[in-house]
């Protein structure tokens, strides 16, 4: 009698059936991850969220920054929305943020496209364009302040090239002063945005563009139909970061104009500083800071929704 031995079925233990081999110690590692992350969580909670919550608490008081305080309910928030100067700061903030997002991203993307593949000197040029990013915004702004000064180099150059009628007291004319702040912000951030877009452009396959070109697609169509969809993640990151940066602009305003002339270039962040430390209305400043936080949150969510990858 022969015994037909059927191929032995692989015996799989119950443990192996439900968990792949690496899962045997994944719970240990997972448990360990929590211990590792705990100090960071505690620090983040204490330094960011607890501090924010404490600041939020003072938004409901009349604290001057020193001494005792009284609870005043929501009156600080009412002041924020009733004070025309504060509303002016809100408008300036939005104008700067929108201008910053648009100009920085458009110019940054153009630089990235120009420096992506073809130029032999692209590595040197990338370094030069990125260089302003590593400088201190305050230091950069003070240098630009000398350029924009009435006797500064901008007016001198305009005079030298026969454009004397274009000379202005750039930082003392309200609308021009706001534009000057925007120029400095954009100038310093183009390099950062260009680098983000260069990273995105590196993921666009050359073959795809070449195939489209063979099929007759022109440069603009290739850019719109191939490049833009493929760099969508970079677009989302760059616009989100520049929007946040634009909404919380402070350094450039303080160094260039101090919020002047006569508060014409105040932004929410500089206004918070002025109310809190110059006018010593800490409660009102805290309320404004909360409003700014919520405002940035809403704008960022809206912007992320608009630029998300729908493919």
């Amino acid at each position: 009698m022969s015994v037909m031995s059927s191929p032995a079925k692989p015996t799989i233990s119950k443990r192996d059936d439900v968990r792949p081999p690496r899962a045997a110690h994944s719970s240990l590692v997972g448990y360990g991850y929590w211990w590792w992350v705990l100090p960071a969580l505690v620090l983040t909670g204490a330094v960011i969220y607890l501090a924010t919550a404490t600041g939020a608490f003072y938004a409901f008081t009349d604290w001057t920054g020193i001494g005792s305080y009284n609870f005043v309910g929501v009156s600080n928030f009412v002041k924020v929305f009733q004070n025309s100067q504060l509303l002016g700061a809100l408008v300036n903030t939005v104008l700067l943020a929108v201008g910053f997002v648009v100009f920085t991203n458009v110019i940054g993307l153009l630089f990235a496209l120009a420096l992506n593949r073809t130029l032999k000197t692209r590595y040197v040029l990338r370094t030069l364009i990125f260089m302003p990013v590593v400088l201190s915004p305050i230091a950069v702004s003070y240098i630009w302040k000398f350029i924009f000064a009435y006797n500064g180099s901008l007016n001198q150059i305009l005079g030298d090239v026969g454009l004397g009628s274009w000379r202005h007291d750039w930082l003392a004319v309200p609308k021009l002063a706001l534009g000057c702040v925007l120029v400095v912000m954009v100038w310093q951030s183009i390099g950062f945005v260009a680098v983000v877009y260069l990273a995105g452009l590196a993921t666009v396959p050359r073959e795809l563009e070449e195939a489209a070109a063979i099929d007759g697609a022109g440069p603009w169509r290739r850019f719109r139909r191939i490049t833009v969809p493929l760099i969508q993640p970079s677009l989302a990151i760059a616009t989100t970061l520049t929007l946040i940066q634009g909404l919380r602009v402070f350094d450039q305003v303080m160094a260039l104009t101090g919020g002047g002339p006569d508060n014409a270039t105040q932004t929410l962040a500089s206004e918070i500083y002025q109310q809190t430390f110059t006018y010593q209305e800490f409660g009102l400043g805290a309320a404004m800071a909360l409003v700014l936080t919520v405002f940035i949150l809403v704008c960022t969510i809206a912007q992320l929704t608009l630029t998300r990858d729908r493919t």
């Binding site: 003392a172 004319v173 309200p174 002047g260 002339p261 006569d262 508060n263 014409a264 110059t278 006018y279 010593q280």
Partner: peptide, 21 residues
């Protein structure tokens, strides 16, 4: 009574010179 009065006097003078106020 506070620093705000003098601060706004100063910035107000600038506003007068620039025609803002």
């Amino acid at each position: 009574p506070n620093g705000k009065v003098y601060a706004d006097l100063g910035s107000g003078v600038q506003g007068l010179l620039t025609g803002q106020t």
